[in-house]
Design a binder for these strands. Structure first.
Lengths: 160, 160
DNA sequence: TTGCGTGCAAACGGTTTGCAGGAAC
DNA sequence: GTTCCTGCAAACCGTTTGCACGCAA
């Protein structure tokens, strides 16, 4: 069944066109790379994908297109603490990540879990949280089991 | 009363020394800059402070020292989404930030508010969250009042 | 035909590295 | 006297920019 290629490509494309932006092959391919990607994708990865079928694209076009798509609300950014930002189609909905600091695994986190937090931020601080992509760092289930005795990784008590 | 300079300087310094690291003037001054800073401080800011009294320091020394201090658990990092990391003495305790995307203001957030989240991550995902510094983006009370009609800033439904 | 979007190359800002000389122990 | 730490300079990496050409509309 794969991805409904035409749908995912046509809607954002149409959206851009209606706004007066030109539909160039580069933009369409960049859009496709993002919407077809299962996970969050970085600018470099988009560039790699696109240039595989269209070698003359330039990385700066990728960045300019990403800026446009973000501006138009078609993609959102996530900072997973890697020193680089990742992108993701806005229509795929928001979700959050648990990033394991031991093994690097990334787990998706149900949005609902953050609702209580959002509510109390609103109630107690009158702060309207925009939690579209949140990365929470820590240690995953598997790594916890493997290293059961330890409780934290940079704890200051170490007496070797 | 100010900061108890000797205490804050001596403890981490002593700690480093006991671990076999040398106590150089550069390290002491960098340590002092961090512990004396009220708010989170960036590498560049540390460099500026230190080089004010010791012009020959190099920014690379700041980075190397920060890496050491982080490794030894004496400072922790926060990523406030500025494209640069900020540092903060570990013994000042953990706290979190509400970052207003409209006006840039940064508010401190009580650690207790995150406990329910941490607990449910542990319960439901067996994930041991290491939430030492979290930045939550959104819109602060004042900016919400000022722009009451809007509900989100990049919402996709816009029909101008 | 018009002007937006692109490729190119160079610059950016924050951070990291190799090296040789100098200081802490 | 060793060895670790530093300053220097250059490289790094992801990202941004100025410019002239070319293509979508």
């Amino acid at each position: 069944m794969a991805v409904k290629k035409h749908d995912v490509e046509r809607n954002p494309a149409q959206f851009l066109q209606e706004r007066g932006f030109r539909l160039t092959p580069q933009r369409l391919m960049i859009l496709a790379a993002i919407t077809e990607s299962q996970k969050h994708i970085s600018a470099e990865e988009i560039y790699a994908r696109v240039s595989a079928q269209y070698p003359q694209v330039n990385i700066s076009t990728v960045y300019r297109t990403l800026a446009l798509l973000k501006e138009q609300g078609l993609v959102t950014e996530t900072d997973l603490g890697e020193g680089r930002v990742r992108y993701h189609a806005a229509d795929k909905g928001h979700h959050h990540h648990l990033v394991c600091q031991s093994c690097g695994a990334i787990f998706d986190l149900d949005e609902a879990l953050l609702e209580p937090l959002e509510r109390s931020l609103l109630d107690e601080y009158n702060f309207e949280a925009d939690i579209r992509h949140l990365a929470i760092f820590g240690r995953c289930s598997r790594c916890r089991q493997r290293a059961a005795p330890a409780k934290g990784q940079e704890v200051i008590d170490a007496h070797p």
